[in-house]
C-alpha cells in the first residue's frame, strides 16, 4: 500500500518465562507519522512486547528494526540515542527538580554534556527547554517543582521530555491511564498533532477504547501472546474474536459515542 519504508519493523518477536510463552511470533510495522494502538486483555503480553521495543526486556528471538537498523537487545539508553522517545504508564519524572530542569536534563543528555562539571546547568539550552514546554502547553509551569504537578500535567511534561531528542518514534505505555476524560482527549490530540507535524511514528497501548477508536490510525490486538487482529478502528471493532476476548458488550466505553456527547 505505502511506498514509504517502515519506520519500525517488528518481526517474529518471541519471549517466554518458565516455559510459558508471554509473546509469540509477533510481527507488525509502523510508518512515519502513523499512530498505531496496541490493545488486548490484561496479561495478553502487551507490556512484555512493549518492553522489548524499548530495551527494558530482551526477546528470545525475533527482530526489531528502526529504519532498517537493528535495535534488538540494545539498552534503553542506546535505543533513545537512536531516536526513540517514551512515556511511562506510571509517570517517571525527576520529582525534586523543576519542570524546566526536567527538560534540561534531557537536553544535556542529547547534547552529550553529561560529564561537564563546570558549566552552568540552569542556563543550559534554556530557550529550547522553554520552546518544548510551550509546545505541550506547559510554558507557564517552567519554575514549578515537578513534585507539585497534577497528574495530567506530569503526562504532558513527560511528552516534552520525550521530544527533547527530536525522536522519530514515540512509545507511549497507557498514555492516558489515570486521567480524566477531557485530559485524555487533550493529550491524545496534542500527541497526534505533533506526530503529524513532525512526522513522528507513535505506538501506544491503551485500555480506554474511546481514546483508541478516536485517535489511532490503525490497531493491532494481542491475545495470549499472539496477534489476533489488525486493521482500522472500524474493522477491529467489528471483529467478533476481538469482541469475545476483549471488548465485551461495549457497555463501558461505547455509551458516550451513542449519546453523541463525544468531544
Amino acid at each position: 500500500m505505502s511506498v514509504a519504508p517502515p519506520l519500525l519493523a517488528v518481526e517474529g518477536l518471541t519471549k517466554s518465562y518458565g516455559g510459558i510463552h508471554a509473546v509469540r511470533g509477533v510481527s507488525f510495522s509502523l510508518r512515519a507519522g502513523e499512530i498505531l494502538a496496541l490493545i488486548g486483555p490484561n496479561g495478553a503480553g502487551k507490556s512484555t512486547c512493549f518492553d522489548m521495543l524499548n530495551g527494558q526486556n530482551k526477546p528470545d528471538s525475533g527482530h526489531v528494526r528502526l529504519l532498517g537498523e537493528e535495535t534488538t537487545g540494545k539498552k534503553p539508553r542506546e535505543i533513545w540515542r537512536m531516536g526513540v522517545g517514551r512515556t511511562f504508564q506510571i509517570t517517571a519524572t525527576f520529582a525534586t527538580m523543576t519542570v524546566r530542569e526536567n527538560v534540561q536534563v534531557a537536553l544535556i543528555s542529547h547534547g552529550k554534556q553529561l560529564y561537564n562539571l563546570f558549566g552552568s546547568a540552569p542556563n543550559f539550552d534554556r530557550n529550547e527547554a522553554g520552546r518544548l514546554l510551550e509546545l505541550v502547553g506547559m510554558g507557564g509551569y517552567a519554575d514549578r517543582p515537578c513534585g507539585e504537578l497534577a497528574y495530567g500535567d506530569l503526562k504532558r511534561l513527560e511528552l516534552a521530555v520525550a521530544l527533547a531528542n527530536e525522536p522519530k518514534l514515540l512509545l507511549m505505555d497507557e498514555p492516558t491511564a489515570g486521567m480524566a476524560p477531557r485530559e485524555r482527549v487533550d493529550l491524545m490530540r496534542l500527541t497526534a498533532q505533533i506526530a503529524r507535524e513532525k512526522s513522528i511514528g507513535v505506538l501506544f497501548t491503551e485500555h480506554d477504547m474511546d481514546v483508541v477508536f478516536e485517535h489511532a490510525d490503525r490497531i493491532i490486538v494481542l491475545n495470549r501472546g499472539t496477534l489476533i487482529a489488525e486493521g482500522s478502528p472500524a474493522e477491529v471493532r467489528g471483529n467478533p474474536q476481538v469482541q469475545a476476548v476483549y471488548l465485551g458488550e461495549g457497555l463501558v466505553y461505547d455509551a458516550r459515542h451513542r449519546e453523541g456527547t463525544s468531544a
Partner: peptide, 19 residues
C-alpha cells in the same frame, strides 16, 4: 553543572534517566 543535574536525575528516577 550539567553533571550535577544528571546526578540528581539518577537520584530521582533511574528509570527515567536511562530512558
Amino acid at each position: 553543572s550539567p553533571f550535577g543535574y544528571a546526578l540528581r536525575a539518577t537520584r530521582d528516577s533511574v528509570l527515567r534517566s536511562e530512558a
